[in-house]
Computed example of a mutant assay.
Amino acid sequence: MVKPLTLKMKALEARAQDLLSEIKNLKNVVEVLEAENAKLRQQLIMMYDVQNNDGTGYIDTPNKVTGRQNLANLYNQGFHVCNIYFGQIRDSECLFCAAFLHREQG
Rank of each mutant, 00 (worst) to 15 (best):
I45M: 08
V65E: 08
R90A: 01
H102V: 04
L7P: 03
P62Y: 14
F100W: 06
L7N: 02
E93L: 06
E36L: 08
K10E: 13
M1A: 09
Q69W: 03
L12A: 12
Q88R: 12
A16H: 01
M46H: 14
A99F: 06
L26E: 11
I23E: 02
M9L: 15
D18E: 15
A16D: 06
Q88I: 00
A14W: 04
E31Q: 10
V32S: 04
G67D: 14
Q17E: 12
K3P: 05
L74G: 02
M1S: 13
Q42E: 12
L19M: 08
G57K: 00
H80W: 04
N76C: 01
G67E: 14
A11Y: 03
A35L: 07
L95H: 03
R15K: 15
A35R: 12
R68L: 13
E104I: 07
K3V: 05
L74W: 05
A35E: 11
A99H: 10
I89A: 05
Q69L: 07
L7G: 03
I23L: 14
K24H: 09
N76P: 00
P62A: 08
G87R: 02
L5W: 02
R41Y: 07
V65T: 04
L7F: 03
V2F: 08
P4C: 03
G106C: 06
M47H: 14
M47D: 11
Q105N: 14
R41M: 00
R103T: 05
V32E: 12
P4V: 02
Q88V: 02
Q42C: 10
V81N: 02
M46C: 10
S21Y: 15
H102C: 10
M1F: 09
A35W: 03
N25T: 14
L5K: 14
V2T: 09
H80V: 03
A72T: 15
F100S: 05
N37I: 12
K27E: 15
V30Y: 09
N52P: 01
K27G: 11
I59H: 00
F96Y: 08
M46D: 15
Q69F: 00
V81G: 01
Y85F: 10
Y48R: 08
F100H: 04
A99G: 10
P4D: 02
V29Y: 01
Y75C: 03
L19E: 15
L26P: 04
K27Q: 15
I89P: 09
R68G: 08
K27H: 09
E22A: 10
Q77N: 13
V50R: 04
A72E: 15
H80D: 01
L40P: 01
L20E: 15
K39S: 04
K27F: 04
F86D: 06
N70I: 11
A98W: 09
M9A: 15
V29R: 13
R15D: 12
Y85Q: 13
A35F: 04
M1C: 09
I23M: 05
A38R: 11
V65I: 10
H80G: 01
Y58I: 05
K64A: 11
R90K: 14
G55F: 02
M47R: 14
R103P: 00
